[in-house]
Every structure is written in structure tokens, then in C-alpha cells.
């Protein structure tokens, strides 16, 4: 029974990692860049929701605040692309990586300046209530997280596979110039994907904040989400989710069964193993062109 309990709590944590990792993968899939600030996006989205919902700030209904926060984060993502990221168009990945690390610093600073550095709790209706299934007790928040993450992954996967815009996004990442030739407005497509990943970050932030307190450094969770994205294979949406779940499940088990000090190493050690033995992740997207 303890086994199942650990497993389920791991699943819930892992879903949050998976959601942040989805944000990484979205941007990687469509722009070939990696957004190191995704964790900070999540933190910012959580804080906007908290700002709108909590009674000491605006105090509007959570169900109104959540979509508003998603909209705001989408707008922020688009704005960042138009003002900053787009100037890097065509430049190497490395430059964008360094740029987004810097962006993360700035976002963290701004959040700290607005909302302070004390941990705060979101007054979320998801935070209350338990679900007991045959002896295993599940928080309402955990159930919601798992369900929302699964749904979001499914829809995004379908979006990339079936819709015209999704295909355009994939095309513009694979070869920018060829995509232009095919009549795809590459820059606008990239703006849209940054907006979309902002929305996903907001969802992750809201769900994460429903589980516990947040502070401006919550964005550092992004590093674990990285592990998730890499384990799953950058560029694969289901991979991101699976990677997130693996990292999430490993954590409580490592904490329970490994000696203290070794447990927090586990996800990173796994990441290194995957990188060494399967450098492009479990759901590898790398194919060698046949001539």
C-alpha cells in the first residue's frame, strides 16, 4: 500500500515536471531553441494567479483568475518573442540559451520586486479535499494535476500532428529557409509558439501553486523539468510527459529507500546515464538522413 501511495504522489509531482517540460519541448519543436526560463515562466504564471485570486490582493474568483493568468502569460510569451527573441532569429542555439538564462534572472528579479521573497500560498479550491480509493489517499490537487497534464499532452500532441499550424511549426523548426519557401510566416509562427508555451507555463504554475507555497525561486524547479525533457528526448511531447513521470516517481522512492544525501542525486544521476547511453533521450527524434 505504501508502494502505491509513493507511486501516486510521485505521479502528481512528475506531472508538474512534465508540464514544464512540455513548455521546453514546445519551443524546441517549433524554434529549435531551448527556453531555460521556462521554470521562471511557470513561477510568474503562478504569481499572477495568486495576485488575482488571493484576498489580500484582488480577490476575484479562482475560476476567473486562472484563464486570465493563462491569457496574461500567453501575452507575455508573445511579447518577449516580438521584442527580444525574434532579434536572435537564425542565430545559433547557444546564443538563445544564454539569452533565456538571462531572461530567467530578470523574471525572477521582477517577481521578487513585485511580490516579495516570502513563500505565499494560492487560495485555490483545488487545494482542499481528498479522494480515497481503496486505502490510497489522494489530494484533490494531485488528481487534477494528473488529469490536466494527461489531457494537455494529448491535445498538444494532436495539435502538432494534425493541424496545419502544428505542421507549420514543425516545418519552421526543421529548416527555416525551406519553411519560408513553402509560404510559412516563420517569425509569426514562432511568436505563436512562445505564446502557447507561456500558456502551458501558466497552467503548470497554477497546478504547482495548488500543491504548496511558491516563492520567486520556485522557477529553479525548471532544472528538474530539464531532466524530464532530456530523459524523454527533447522534441517529443509524450516523451516529456513520460520523462517527467519517471523523474517524479524516482524522487519519492529514492527518498524512501536510499540513504540520506544520495536521494536528491537520483534524478540527475539518471539524467547523466540517459545522456551517456542514449544521448537523445528515450523517445529519440534524431534520424540520420538516408542518401
Amino acid at each position: 500500500m505504501e508502494f502505491i501511495q509513493l507511486f501516486v504522489s510521485g505521479l502528481a509531482n512528475g506531472s508538474v515536471y512534465g508540464l514544464i517540460a512540455l513548455g521546453f519541448v514546445l519551443i524546441y519543436k517549433a524554434t529549435e531553441a531551448v527556453n531555460f526560463a521556462q521554470g521562471d515562466f511557470m513561477m510568474f504564471g503562478a504569481f499572477i494567479t495568486l495576485w488575482l485570486t488571493n484576498t489580500e490582493y484582488f480577490g476575484i474568483s479562482f475560476w476567473l483568475a486562472a484563464p486570465l493568468a493563462m491569457l496574461a502569460m500567453g501575452g507575455l510569451g508573445y511579447l518577449l518573442d516580438v521584442t527580444i527573441i525574434r532579434r536572435m532569429f537564425g542565430q545559433s542555439q547557444t546564443a538563445v540559451v544564454i539569452l533565456t538564462i538571462a531572461l530567467g534572472f530578470v523574471i525572477r528579479f521582477v517577481a521578487g520586486a513585485i511580490w516579495g521573497h516570502e513563500p505565499q500560498t494560492l487560495e485555490s479550491p483545488l487545494a482542499h479535499g481528498d479522494l480515497a480509493v481503496g486505502g490510497v489517499v489522494l489530494g484533490m490537487a494531485d488528481v487534477t494535476i494528473i488529469v490536466v497534464t494527461a489531457l494537455l499532452t494529448f491535445f498538444l500532441f494532436q495539435f502538432f500532428k494534425r493541424t496545419k499550424l502544428g505542421l507549420a511549426m514543425q516545418a519552421s523548426s526543421q529548416n527555416q529557409m525551406a519553411a519560408y519557401y513553402m509560404g510559412i510566416p516563420v517569425k509569426r509562427v514562432q511568436g505563436l509558439i512562445w505564446a502557447l508555451s507561456g500558456v502551458v507555463a501558466a497552467v503548470a504554475g497554477i497546478l504547482f501553486a495548488s500543491k504548496g507555497a511558491i516563492d520567486p525561486n520556485a522557477g529553479l524547479l525548471g532544472i528538474k523539468a530539464f531532466a524530464a525533457a532530456v530523459i524523454g528526448g527533447f522534441g517529443s511531447l509524450p516523451g516529456a510527459l513520460v520523462g517527467g513521470l519517471i523523474v517524479g516517481v524516482i524522487e519519492p522512492f529514492a527518498a524512501r529507500f536510499l540513504p540520506a544525501g544520495y536521494s536528491q542525486i537520483a534524478p540527475y544521476a539518471l539524467l547523466l546515464f540517459v545522456l551517456i547511453f542514449r544521448p537523445h533521450g528515450l523517445f529519440s527524434q534524431v534520424r540520420t538522413k538516408k542518401v
Binding site: E32, G90, S92, S173, Q174, K289
Partner: peptide, 10 residues
């Protein structure tokens, strides 16, 4: 002026 290509197809 440069354009980026994916590293996933090599």
C-alpha cells in the same frame, strides 16, 4: 543573415 536548420535530422 543566416537560417537555422534542425539538428535532429543529420
Amino acid at each position: 543573415k543566416s537560417y537555422l536548420k534542425t539538428e535532429r535530422l543529420r
